[in-house]
Amino acid sequence: MGTDRCAYLSRLRRVDPVPKVWFTLAALLVCLLADSIAVGLFTLAALSALNLALGGQRAGDLLRFLRVPLAFLVIGCLTIVLRPIGQGEALWAFRLLGRWCWGVTEENLRLGVLVCCKAMGAVSAMYFLSMNTPMTDLTAALERLKLPRLFVELVELIYRFIFLLTDTAASIHTAQQARLGYQGFRRSIRSMGELLSAVFVRSLHRGNRVFSALESRGYTGCLATLPGQYAPGRWLYGLAAAVAVCQLLILFAERRLLP
């Protein structure tokens, strides 16, 4: 839960999460719909800069997080750039097993770079949200944005109990290892199966106890709570508009300058 830890330290921690969600969505949507390399790069730069400047995040952390999707993207984009092509228009080509002609065309190269830039722009927007909004604030925001209650409550409960579940699984795993449960392939498979069934049974029991505890505090079918008080975040709407204007200006400039 790396980004969540950053979120609790963020300078925007106490800011109302709803404007943060809208701000992120606006930057994300414009970046995706603009379908342009320059806008993608601008979104990446601008949102990362805002993340550091407003959220007070460390550049090292952000780079570490950005590297994660980058690895997947580069591999994904390679398959767009390098593919079977016809004769003639290739920038670079080779024959696969003497029969198929594979290579890089200008069109495919442009498409690959576009996808990569667009995706990184979008990812940086998502990181702005996730590195500055703790998960619990985010679920509170989703509820205020009128997402279905059941969905929001499930997200809340899953987020809370995933930590307990991983703790339980980890201690069972340690206990199995202490008795040589993971020596050899067959035994490992067997032990893993037992671990999973033990975790499942314990979850079932815990579920019953949690339900009793909820009932004794007056649960009537709805996990209604009151979040802490937030600092107003209306200024983020202004910022969202400013970012969108810059994105669009860059889009037009790119269309003008490049044929």
Partner: peptide, 19 residues
Amino acid sequence: DDQLFSADVYRDVSFGAVN
């Protein structure tokens, strides 16, 4: 851990009063 269902301390404490 059976009683605290919310990942947020403030919200968990508020639950009974909201109910």
